Amino acid sequence: MEKAIRMLQSNDYPYLEAMDTGIEFDYITSIFDRLVAGNNRLYGLFLDGQLVSMCGYSIYADSYAMLGRLRSDRRFVGSGFATELVSYVMNEVFQLNGIQWVGANTQEHNISAQRVLKKIGLTPYITLHGALTKDTSTLESGAKPWQPVTDLKRKKEWVNKKYIQTGAIFPYECYYPFPASADLFQEPDLETWSFFENDDQTRFLITKYDQKKHHYLHAVYPWHDITSQPGLWETIANNYRKLRRQTDGETYIWMDLTREEAQMLPADHQFELPSPWILYGTDKSR
């Protein structure tokens, strides 16, 4: 049998259609053209001209790459093709100029994907719920919302202290958290993102707009005391209402919560807590 791995192009879509993945409604089929262009790439492993495994990556902030879109033909599961392909793609990514970190985000129940990631040398960093809600009233106390931070220097001080110096996980986009470095905090983003701090300037919050399938107010708060900071949820709620007036589709608040943070939520909270995602990765030095 003849085996080959190559980068996919938009005219390779029929090969994807011919795969038996067992996924009834696969979002990849509707955005295939976008996944082979720009900062996205797809690779395929072919056996005698048949696509039997597919994997790709996306580049973020010029130095991070997230592996994903792993698909395998069920008729070839257990052959090791998925591991071979993902390993190949990871090595290709690390050859790109500027890439310092490669990872993957997979749902907790996806044990087969986790096995592949561990085999290629990726290690788990953190497990996070992508918590969604339209109603934060059970977390609000009527406290005064926090003050906006508009000074770019002050914004830089906050992210440097809580993220860059510590290497803490920063939710750069919905579904895409990364171990922090200065590359994640470019001035155009810092100017666009909304920052708020409490009266005694001991806490700060970032809110930013994101769109995947729906519209999101992505709230980023780098402390675990999410239920005991007066004004935190009033600030988030105010920003959510502003965003909702500007969008014409389903609009949610998204907050990345650890398992422990999710357990802190009051019993009557209105968050959806889907299956958590596990972030795996490795940096170039390793």
Rank of each mutant, 00 (worst) to 15 (best):
D183E: 12
T258W: 00
Q229G: 03
I169S: 01
P148K: 11
F46A: 08
A143G: 04
K212E: 13
V86Y: 00
K155M: 06
V159M: 07
A18I: 06
P274Y: 08
N91H: 14
D26S: 04
G98N: 08
D210L: 05
G103P: 05
T227N: 07
D62V: 05
T258P: 01
T29F: 10
S53H: 14
D33C: 05
F46D: 05
G281L: 04
P276K: 15
T227Q: 07
P274F: 05
A237W: 14
H218S: 07
S72I: 11
F271V: 06
P179R: 01
I278S: 01
T282E: 13
V220F: 01
Y13M: 09
V89T: 02
I99R: 09
Y252T: 00
R154V: 12
I164H: 02
T133D: 07
H224F: 13
E24K: 08
S53F: 10
H269S: 04
R75K: 15
K162F: 13
L16T: 03
A267Y: 11
A61M: 12
L217K: 06
Q165N: 14
T21P: 03
G44Q: 01
T123R: 12
D151K: 00
P222V: 03
Q147Y: 12
K118P: 08
E197C: 06
T282K: 13
L16V: 09
D183C: 09
P188H: 03
D189P: 09
F76H: 12
R154L: 11
L16W: 09
D256M: 03
E157M: 15
Q211D: 15
A182C: 10
T83Y: 00
Y209H: 02
C55K: 00
F195Y: 08
K212I: 13
R41F: 05
D62M: 07
S72Y: 05
D225Q: 12
L243V: 12
Y176S: 13
K161W: 13
